[in-house]
Amino acid sequence: MRSVIDISELTTGEIDELIATANDIIANPERYSEKCRGKKLATLFFEPSTRTRLSFEAAMYELGGNVLGFSEAQSSSASKGESVADTARVVSCYADIIAMRHPKEGAPLVAARNASIPVINAGDGGHSHPTQTLADLLTIYREKGGFENLTVGFCGDLKFGRTVHSLISALIRYKGVKFVLISPAELKLPGYVKDKLDKAGIEYRETDSLENSIADLDILYMTRVQKERFFNEEDYLRLKDTYILTPEKMALAGAGLRVLHPLPRVNEISVAVDSDSRACYFKQVLYGKYMRMALILKLLGVK
């Protein structure tokens, strides 16, 4: 039974196929409204993530299916000490597909190895969150018409940001993609991810200035710079404003720039940027739902 635990398990062909399905759903939603009639999605959320859970649930409802599940470990059998493997076996008897969120890395893989139905990783700790990356990819595709030859800037916490690592590993499959890595020295992209870029022959440069690099970008992927990542308060206070996107910085960017953010945002994008037509982070949420619909269809084998 096919599951999706990490974005690297999907071939480029499969990603392109999911994007094509999502585009077709957007164009002809009525054709899909009954596709999953009689099917059930189990949302097993061992830690709360309302946004991701609602996106999965909305996706299944729009396909005509039903949803069951729990939204935190306290309200599940896990609070009685049941293993992830047993939960997966039991839920396989009730549902047709599982979306699982868990605070521990690898829990969805354990579920996939024991379930008799497909499992989608809806986020496992700081490890993987493939449907976020699918949402990011569809947003870029819809806004730019493709991925080839794009210059993509990543700004903020590039060291711990799993969404950044995952999107990078998806984008390096496409021809001519260039990266600009914008972060304080403390939060640079880890060496093993840069090794991947070198191996793939990808052009990239590192900088600590968003202001000086924003004009070169087709895509700006913003992330949050968290206070607890810094050794001391002064460094944090000194650096945090550098990585806040404001209308002043947007004025330096080209008309073709598109701004993405995995949300939730705290203060790294000023609300004054929201009305800028180049800001795409709320559209990204919508596209995330369409990609989850496409993925559910694919894993359930619904044509």
Binding site: S83, V84, A85, K104, E105, G106, L109, V110, G125, H127
Partner: peptide, 12 residues
């Protein structure tokens, strides 16, 4: 890795 599922589920 203390964040790994194997750290809380001993029988895995």
């Amino acid at each position: 890795n203390p964040r790994c599922i194997t750290s809380v589920e001993q029988e895995l």
